[in-house]
Design a protein around this nucleic acid. Structure first.
Lengths: 343, 343
DNA sequence: TTGTACGCGTTATCAT
DNA sequence: ATGATAACGCGTACAA
């Protein structure tokens, strides 16, 4: 009873005494096929347990309708929101999504890029690993004219399209806001500055200080991997400072939440003693007490935009192969963690 | 200069005056091919911009090395942790991962199941949509002997393998713990009880009440979609009760955090006035003040286990096609949100 | 060690 | 409205 043999259009053709091409057309609802014939074809297909073979079509069509996505990790609030946006748009346009995570390793990233290439993805979306410096593994995509877009973490330059926010501006605004609230000793905790997103935020932080006649001190910048453990370690060091900071600009809401909680447990008042601004507008930022000021950074929207942009490049008409940098709007959201009423 | 023509092993063969099969073997590092020949082949391949075609191989091999994953949504803490676990195991075993999200819709789920089928995935992992009652769309997988495993949200029965935790036990323990802390009016907020995971937790809640001579009251159970908005609405209703509850068992940490915050803002003390237990042990549960008691429910581990189990089924040797239910350990983690010192 | 020949399942082209 | 045929790129049994 079990259907061991794979059923193909040839089998259906034979059974119905028709040719394979007729079956193929019938299954595609081709206009030139008799309605009655179509019905017979569909019925036979169902009955025989026929299963369409996308690979065979891909092989013929030289196109896979599949988009590759390489991200540093799947279990991150920002990344998963972005993926949700990407998936939504891709599904809507009839594309499948092949995903892998580099786990912040350049080597894995390169390996997965190769897999994507061999899988003949029609396009690729990448958020770079923290330590990726050499991006030669993406060269083949350029060579084969396969659209490759960077989302969030990309590389400056004119070879690839980037979808980003203005991190320098965001960093500037966050810092300037803290200064406006009366802070003058502001610590910045951020990620690996190999990545522009973090380097730019730090630059913004630095410029804001300088514009307000405050000194930029390397010692006040902590570059970490933004995990819970690293954040705790940084907090321990900060709490041992001779003079405590009065402001904290953290490149990630979850870390900012950890900081907030640690400081409160150490008996400090937020924002009176130390004001805090996070980054991303994760759900977390609304849960803390007090709620976190943060930079709104809509992951889902970014995913949708990068996917739409990619899909556009895949259309024969809108073959906008132009390299560009798409900058999304971001905005500082001020909540109680940094709002000092009596300033 | 740009490589318009797709380079195949035939092109390499022609250039090197060898046969295509030799090229094929060489590229696979076949033992029977002369080392010198191999080198010539690899060099030519690089030089000519050759790109391996996985589809052609798949077509031949009748195997795709691809696993499909259908989840309700990508942007959920639990789901993304699970996906991270799945991805890790699959990559380790050389499988690719094709992902789509049903957005909690049975229709989409059915459509994506079909896509996965046509894409000839070697196996499928599914977390059911909230409203899925009819699972006939998975029938073809059974028919074609394609392993299909349910992760977390599955269906009871003997046709498909499930990887789950004992939700009834978890619900029982959470409730019994609240009772032990002196609660006697315990509200339960949970998801769509069409899904066993939520129905079972409610059952556990009910049994715990009954075992401790408390009455189970339908009015005390709120079934929601577990979003922030719905949770707020439920809280509004609860705050209007004539007699407030003294305990809250919430099927999701994020919602529990919303509840906790809302109640505190209403002037209630946690846990003195109302004790709270959440579910999942999300990062969120450690951020709230006080931190949330919760049920540890390791998403990443579940992902790893379901992926490993699937991979095992795909091996010719370990063709454990047996349908089974894999129950992972879960445990109640007691934190301050429910611990009443002076009970 | 290397080559020949065919099949994997579909679709486009040309023909009837 | 339907059919015959070739081609997509690779792998493998069999032959040399």
């Amino acid at each position: 009873m079990s259907q061991e043999k794979v059923v193909t259009i040839y089998d259906i053709a034979e059974k119905l005494s028709l040719s394979p091409s007729t079956i193929s057309r019938g299954l595609q609802n081709h206009a030139a096929i008799n309605a009655m014939t179509k019905k017979r074809i569909f019925d036979a297909a169902n009955e025989m347990g026929y299963r369409f073979n996308t690979f065979a079509r891909n092989l013929r069509a030289q196109k896979t309708n599949t988009i590759g996505v390489i991200v540093p990790r799947l279990n991150s609030y920002f990344i998963s929101a972005m993926l949700a946006g990407i998936e939504k748009e891709l599904q809507g346009a009839g594309y499948n999504m092949l995903i892998s995570q580099s786990l912040e390793s350049q080597d894995k990233e390169a390996e997965y890029a190769k897999t994507m290439l061999h899988n003949r993805v029609d396009g690729l979306i990448v958020t770079l690993a923290a330590n990726t410096t050499d991006i030669n593994h993406f060269q083949p995509f350029l060579k084969h004219h396969i659209p490759l877009l960077f989302a969030d973490r990309g590389v400056a330059g004119d070879r690839y399209t980037n979808v980003v926010i203005d991190n320098r501006k965001a960093g500037y605004e966050a810092t300037a806001h803290l200064i406006g609230e009366g802070c003058s000793r502001i610590v910045h905790i951020t990620g690996n500055t190999t990545r522009d997103v973090y380097a730019d935020r730090r630059d913004g932080y630095r410029r804001a200080l300088e514009d307000h006649s405050l000194v930029f001190d390397e010692e006040m910048v902590y570059e970490t991997d933004l995990t819970e453990i690293s954040t705790m370690k940084v907090m321990n060091r900060i709490l041992k400072m001779n003079v405590l900071p009065d402001g904290l600009f953290v490149s990630n809401d979850f870390c900012a939440a950890i900081c907030l909680k640690t400081l409160r447990q150490a008996g400090l008042r937020i924002p009176e003693d130390i004001a805090i601004v996070g980054f991303n507008n994760d759900a977390t930022s609304r849960i803390t007490e007090p709620p976190l000021s943060t930079v709104n950074y809509p992951g889902q929207e970014m995913g949708e935009i990068v996917a739409r942009s990619l899909i556009n490049r895949l259309r024969p008409e809108g073959a906008t192969s132009a390299v560009e940098t798409i900058v999304l709007e971001s905005e500082l959201i001020i909540r109680s963690s940094s709002r000092r009423e009596g300033k």
